[in-house]
Design a protein around this nucleic acid. Structure first.
Lengths: 337, 337
DNA sequence: CTGTTAGCGCCTTCAG
DNA sequence: CTGAAGGCGCTAACAG
């Protein structure tokens, strides 16, 4: 292993000068700097992360707590992780992965052992036992998701209420006289991730405003059978409803269940999914969707987190930030009149 | 921050005794041990990771290099990451995420800065520029994927050749007189991940052995149009072919393209996908599949990696290990006669 | 502008 | 069975 002392010897300077050249926290003559940088290059020196962390109290690591394990909404997770990793690297940080099944213990471990400088916490439940623990840590924490009480922690999430509004606005604009939400599986509802409620609230309010019918079919068991049954109930009211599916997992099954019954989306019904663009384009026909923009959410979360890490950069005053969704018209809705 | 000296003071012992109680590398009287453990509990002491790494030359971190970024096979990635994280935690290690787009630089950073004790490298190309770099590092490396030349590194992968064999064996057992492979997108073939070749080799050999027809439709552009076109060509030969789709992304589109044409899987053709069980169950109807067992592969990889980390535990003599696939019969093939 | 020095918190050898 | 002491490699005062 090559240390900064080796570099110092080769460059003919003191070890601390090497340190200062790397950190830039002191002015160094051009000539000395060059000698040091040359020595660094020649020896392919890299600073030891543990030693640096010990001395500086900075690990340059972001802890990321992701929902793995049973019952996790594992589907759209990758774009989050990917964006978070890339934002971290852009600020010269690395990402340490911790899984949700460690619970609050994972958080205290991250902070207590000084494994990271800041934490991103995903998969937040409405009444999440980890929130008070997270709030008491001595490192900044950002939540992706909005709990009932964030205990003073900053949160970023998609704007599910607005997503509901946007979806129902579109249904109304397409001239339907009623909208049916085909909702979530029972376990998701029970876990009480509050986006379910938030979406429905936005959708219901929009329906009321437009004066169109509003109903919810839920819970929807996962798989083809559950979707078939839900579609059956959704079409029960007759007419030409707008069908909104605020559940990524259910979009494809519902679509297939409709097609199976000979119901042609865009002609007989309108179908709008709440899912990623990738998922919306993967089905046949491609589904008109309200997108969850995981990348925007993650990017914003990291922005706030790094502001929290800088003592000078003031963090945003607003504790909760909601990222607006985007509607993309595809093949399961007719053109807007 | 509470340190081991604080614990020592409270317990009335020396700091080194605290260290020995935690590591167990020295026999400690029952009474002393209890006093120390009580103090640890009382103060909720946790050892500082940086200090420990500096002193012990062990970070208790596994570096995981995952294929994010453009053109990555992002689909079935999560089970790998999840399993690797869980195996790491089971051995009291954490996982540091590095993305493929850092290339070889990511590897030298992980090792050079002593950010981790060992590295898992995924998404290996046949002629991968990172292999020689990885082989020269001073930390153990395990490859998930098999390059042409592993430079002495241990590799684990799915047995794609056997997967091809198993799929075609099933097609033959179902009485089809020809099998059609609906292959990969052009970019995957060009990237030269060698599983494409391996699968086709196994499939072709099996077809020859059974004396049935064998043809490949490739490249297949992503999306519904590409699938429709591929299905058209696949059915061109007439009769009642067995269709094998060794491309997770294409399984659903191909299925839908078949249904669209009024071809009923299991009655008119047999359809076998190469994909995860989750993906196979997500379509309607559920697809008979040969599963890639990412969990088995990851588990085995971590097993080898930790053996490589133990100086006493001898690593397996065999450098390349292939995990056998598993065939699950679902709704797109008839019952085996 | 540069060098010297005192830790950061823990592991581990050497003494007892 | 336990303590004392040195050092892991780096940062950041303090002293010129």
């Amino acid at each position: 292993m090559v240390t900064s002392r080796d570099v110092a010897r080769v460059a003919g300077v003191s070890q601390s000068t090497v340190s200062y050249v790397m950190s830039g926290r002191r002015s160094i003559s051009a000539e000395t700097r060059k000698r040091v940088l040359d020595a660094i290059e020649q020896l392919t020196y890299q600073p030891n992360a543990g030693a640096r962390a010990l001395a500086s109290q900075r690990t340059q690591v972001i802890g990321l707590v992701v929902p793995f394990g049973p019952g996790a909404d594992t589907a759209g997770l990758l774009p989050f992780i990917e964006t978070i990793a890339s934002c971290a690297r852009a600020e010269d940080h690395d990402v340490l992965l911790v899984t949700t099944d460690e619970g609050a213990a994972g958080l205290t471990r991250l902070a207590g052992r000084a494994l990271c400088d800041a934490i991103v916490l995903m998969d937040i439940e409405a009444d999440d036992a980890r929130i008070p623990v997270a709030a008491a840590l001595n490192v900044p924490v950002i939540l992706i998701g909005v709990p009932d009480d964030s205990a003073g922690l900053h949160c970023v999430d998609m704007d599910f209420a607005l997503a509901g509004t946007v979806a129902v606005d579109e249904v109304a604009a397409l001239g339907h006289d009623r909208v049916v939400l085909i909702g979530h599986a029972a376990d998701v509802i029970e876990r009480d991730i509050n986006f379910v409620r938030r979406f429905q609230r936005g959708a219901a309010a929009a329906a009321r405003r437009h004066g169109i019918g509003y109903s919810v079919v839920a819970p929807v068991p996962p798989g083809a059978a559950g979707a078939r049954d839900a579609v059956e109930r959704a079409l029960d009211g007759g007419g030409r409803p707008g069908v909104v599916v605020p559940n990524s997992q259910a979009v494809a099954p519902v679509l297939h269940a409709l097609v199976e019954r000979g119901v042609v989306p865009s002609r007989d019904v309108s179908l709008i999914g709440l899912c990623t663009d990738a998922a919306a384009e993967a089905t046949t026909p491609a589904v008109t969707n309200v997108s969850l923009e995981p990348r925007d959410v993650s990017r914003r979360a990291m922005e706030i987190l790094f502001r929290l890490l800088d003592r000078d950069g003031e963090p945003p005053a607003r504790l909760v930030e909601l990222i607006p969704p985007r509607l993309t018209r595809r093949d399961t809705t007719p053109p807007v009149p």
